[in-house]
């Protein structure tokens, strides 16, 4: 099992160069059944990452480009009145939207109106959509990657702070290291390589891996560390409010997924530290509007491991 996951990471690494950590976080997020928010400028490989992930895991993929005139129905799907050529009867038929695929890339999610954003976020949370009275479940491995461009300030609807914690993790890609960028420029186009990429996991294997996440042991000693971190965010003078209990559960789950990727049967403090910034940073709200919230790294450094 473990071997497969490592192979998955390896083959992802051939597509997205020099971003092992982000790839691993993305995979951990997926394993933990969470959703991922990538915040970065365009052109650093967000879409490539999403495509590679779906390809390597053998999952169906849809991409939605969010714009200000995007409507909820454009994502969820719509019922259309049509005539059946064979029987001659007419009836409404539901045309599922792009959300009905296993990996959804919601590109530039902060460009859409809050209404559309809400529709997406609700589907992410419920893992089902209700359209015209009928509740339709979403496919089982269901993974939303949303991207957000922090540089754009005009014509965007930033996700409200309260909705940020619908995403298990928030990461940013960053520019590739020099060696990786060199390879990128020297070798052939990544998109063609992507097409040749073979799945390393079947959907059922993925589901099994997801169910293994919850079985990674978290001992009382580790829970004490989680609590120490959470309490530190609540006590911190620079923070308006600390991590919620839901955030604590998310942190544990993400650490479990990370430990699984590391091939461990129990979570160790380093696993928590590895995912802490990705899980916690976007949930921390600075106490003062003008000042930035303290970094998750600073909090990690201030909290002793019990």
């Amino acid at each position: 099992m473990n071997l497969d996951l490592n192979r998955t990471l390896d083959s992802l690494g051939t597509i997205v160069l020099g971003k092992e950590r982000q790839l691993k976080l993305a995979l951990a997020c997926l394993l933990a059944r969470g959703h991922l928010l990538i915040e970065d400028v365009p052109g650093v490989g967000k879409t490539t990452l999403a495509l590679a992930l779906s390809k390597v895991l053998g999952l169906s993929f849809q991409r939605v480009q969010f714009t200000s005139d995007l409507l909820p129905a454009d994502i969820l799907g719509v019922s259309v009145f049509e005539r059946d050529a064979a029987s001659g009867n007419s009836h409404f038929r539901f045309h599922p939207g792009p959300i009905f695929s296993q990996v959804v890339l919601a590109d530039e999610v902060n460009r859409a109106s809050p209404k559309t954003q809400s529709a997406l976020l609700e589907a992410m949370e419920e893992r089902q959509v209700s359209v015209e009275g009928a509740t339709r479940p979403l496919p089982d491995p269901f993974f939303v990657l949303a991207t957000q461009n922090p540089a754009d300030q005009i014509g965007v609807f930033p996700l409200p702070e309260s909705q940020m914690d619908r995403f298990l993790m928030r990461i940013s890609m960053g520019f590739p290291p020099r060696a990786a960028e060199r390879a990128l420029l020297l070798e052939q186009d990544r998109r063609t390589l992507l097409a040749e990429l073979q799945p390393t996991l079947t959907p059922s294997q993925l589901r099994e891996a997801q169910s293994l996440v919850g079985k990674v042991v978290t001992t009382p000693a580790l829970v004490d560390y989680l609590l120490a971190l959470i309490e530190a965010t609540r006590r911190h003078a620079g923070l308006k409010q600390g991590l919620s209990p839901r955030a604590g559960l998310a942190l544990r789950r993400a650490a479990q997924a990370w430990a699984l990727l590391e091939g461990r049967s129990g979570v160790i403090p380093e696993d928590v530290q590895a995912v802490f910034a990705a899980v916690a940073q976007h949930r921390l709200i600075a106490a003062e509007r003008e000042r930035a919230a303290p970094t998750a790294e600073a909090i990690l450094e201030a909290v002793a491991i019990p």
Binding site: I268, P269, E270, E301, A302, V303, A304, I305
Partner: peptide
């Protein structure tokens, strides 16, 4: 260090 995990 206090915040340093055993593995690190």
């Amino acid at each position: 260090r206090p915040h340093e995990g055993p593995q690190h």
